[in-house]
Amino acid sequence: MPESKKNQSRSDQGKPIVEFINVSKIYDKYRQEVVALEDISFKIDKGEFVSIVGRSGTGKSTIVKLMIAEEKATKGGVKVLDWDLNKIRDRRVPEFRRQLGVVFQDYKLLTRKTVYENVAYAMVVSGQSIAKIKRTVPQVLDLVGLKDKGRRFPKELSGGEQQRTAIARALVHRPELLVADEMTGELDVLYAWEIMEILLKINQMGTTVIIATHDRDIVNKINKRVITLEEGKIIRDQKKGDYLL
């Protein structure tokens, strides 16, 4: 597979894991154009932990959607894990998606499945063997601290636990890159911090983590790279930043 070979050479040369080159995104709904992103460029290297911050409606989720090939850029280039997402073919998208983990702003858990089943689902539908599923799911549930809650249904969980379920599901493919939208959003401080610790732990294990959030306290506390958005543009990109707005 050419992609995996390229992956190898990338880490050798320090090539970025995510690269946005002059990206604009214009939504066109009901003939009304919404400029969500305007001429955005940034690079994220392997192993980084990056927070993308900004007010509601500034385009954080849009960046995430572009990164996971859920939306296509109107202008500019998006490269993730050496895939050129402007040119990716529909039938190769599943392969790409299995190389990264995504936690969605609304979690996207199946309400009629248990925690265990929700996490296993990602492996089931991508054709993994039962043995591998049985091995992997308990491991990732343990990693996010849900070892004992596998049999619960999402509605029997707290918001933080639902989010952790979503993280566990994002991790089943052992991705190099984890993208999380609006982490810790509506959680109270204690829960939010728990989630952040899990993400930091995952990052320490070598996974690149990108989060979109507007939780200023948390971002300031972890002291990692921060990309700040305002009205669809990057107004700040700090190596060890804080969230000033």
Binding site: I68, E70, R91, V93, P94, E95, R97, R98, V102, F104, K108, L110, Y121, A122, V125, S126, G127, R169, H173
Partner: peptide, 17 residues
């Protein structure tokens, strides 16, 4: 619809969808 969206987002093969 919802299941199909999730399937696609978590990397389900096209056949599976």
């Amino acid at each position: 619809k919802y299941e199909i969206r999730i399937m696609k987002l978590v990397g389900a093969t096209n056949n599976f969808v």
